[in-house]
Design a protein around this nucleic acid. Structure first.
Lengths: 100, 100
DNA sequence: ATATTATATGAACAATCATTCATATTTGCA
DNA sequence: TGCAAATATGAATGATTGTTCATATAATAT
């Protein structure tokens, strides 16, 4: 193979992070604007703890970044790659919907 | 949320399929040309059984398609979305490499 | 028919991972 | 200093999943 083993592994890690319903909901939640943890939890109807755990995973994986303001912490999508992965995956899914 | 729950779930399923090192290796293997099961197994150094199992998952998820010729079955990438997901994820990973 | 080659499948096991619950940390304010 | 609000963390658990091994199916050739 032409591609390095450790690059494959990093791709696996990256995609594994994206491949979870809770984390996808969080990302869609942040698509338009930054939000703090509690607002996200309310919006996607999940516990504060769960959202916090998943945000950590998303942040470690470079999917989101955060900004502190007083006692609140605002999260937002990190870059264009994240949006693109969401977009293309969505297209793929919607295309399938068509001929099911 | 604006996006439907079952679309999120399908996105999860799609990304889950992509997020495995063995399956990624298979996809990279098929990037340029179609190949049969045994050739893939040899190329990525995996057992025939494992490759067959993973090809089934890739096929069910619309990542690859297959073509029968005699006793052999040739697999190839299904469409552009697959290539794009690989490409963008690769970019994301390589960008991270830069500032580690 | 039998043997051979290519691929698929089912069961089983180990490992990974999402979620919950309880608790800890941090910040702002009275 | 003490309280409340916002977020993070650790342990435990139940479910999912990648891999292996053994075996089954399918097609071809002798």
């Amino acid at each position: 193979m032409e591609i390095k083993e450790h690059v494959i592994n990093k791709m696996q890690d990256t995609l594994k992070i994206a491949s979870d319903a809770t984390r996808l909901k969080i990302m869609f939640c942040l698509l338009k604007e930054e939000k703090c943890v509690n607002d996200i939890a309310l919006e996607i109807n999940a516990s504060q703890s769960l959202v916090s755990h998943q945000l950590k995973i998303l942040k470690d994986g470079e999917f989101v970044k955060s900004r502190k303001e007083g006692t609140k912490i605002y999260y937002s999508l990190k870059d264009e790659h994240v949006r693109q992965i969401m977009e293309i995956t969505l297209e793929h899914v919607l295309e399938d919907e068509a001929h099911d």
